[in-house]
Amino acid sequence: MTLSAQDATEQRQKKHVRDRWLLSAPALILIIAASVGPLLIVVLYSFLAPGSYGDVKWEFSTEGWFNVLFTRDIFDDTVSLADAHFSIFWRSIKLAFATTVFCLIFGFPTAYFIATRAPHNRSLWLFLITIPFWTNMLIRTFAIQEVIRSEGIINTLLMKIGIISAPIQMMFTDFAIMLGMTYVFLPLMVLPLYASLEKLDFRLIEAGYDLYASRFGVLWRIIIPLVKPGIIAGSILVFVPALSSYVVPRVLGGGKNLMVGNLIELQFGQGRNWPLGAALSVTLVIIVLFAMLYYVRNASKSGGSAHG
């Protein structure tokens, strides 16, 4: 052995790091090839010209991005704001926001309820929350559809009792989409809320009552401020997938009540305007990234205890 001590240490160190890169290589390559890498292609495509039968022509064009914001009249080439796109983006944001609020209204008491159970019962309640989460989203959407459709169980029941004479049209409305999304994304709100509430020091609540706070005062001035990180985490976790939701609006919204996800699909299907679809996708990713950034900022500010 003629190796000097430093060399030997360094060699072991290098081998350690090299082994680690080799071990993680398959996962990294697969993800980059089939998940992250293609995103760059989307960015590229958003700057190309649309082909006549889908796909693209290989020439630089900002038409895709232009079309996100404006429409050009086919006959006289006049330019106007793309109302349809704005209204769809706006509707998506409104629906996602409303979904978040409803998830919070239902999710907070539920998470609080679970967190105040005896410790050995909690995992069972949590399990009950996670079961629907792991069952197929399409099936859950389908289940909601069965309940609310005109010939579905609610309308049939109401008509039998005689409260209504004709079925209420619930399918293909914004309400249906919102209901569906609330149903589908509720567990995503409950889990981070629970994680925060579980760590709540109930001596602080005792102190609150000791200092003459009412039940509501304790909730509003002590509990909610303390679990704010959990509320933010849950809200982002619901808002992001709701905003980019595709299956729920497709099934429950019908052809007219589009959300961004459906608008994007349209450009790759019937619309045959891939650059526009690509530009819309990039816009969506940017909005999502901002939401995420906001979340990460908040999470790190509050000691990263939000998500757990």
């Binding site: 052995m1 190796l3 001590a5 430093q6 030997a8 240490t9 072991r12």
Partner: peptide
């Protein structure tokens, strides 16, 4: 751990590496 300097000898053989 590897020593930064010096040797570990066992029955006269260097085993430090």
């Amino acid at each position: 751990e590897l020593p930064t300097e010096g040797q570990v000898l066992l029955d006269g053989t260097d085993i430090s590496r």
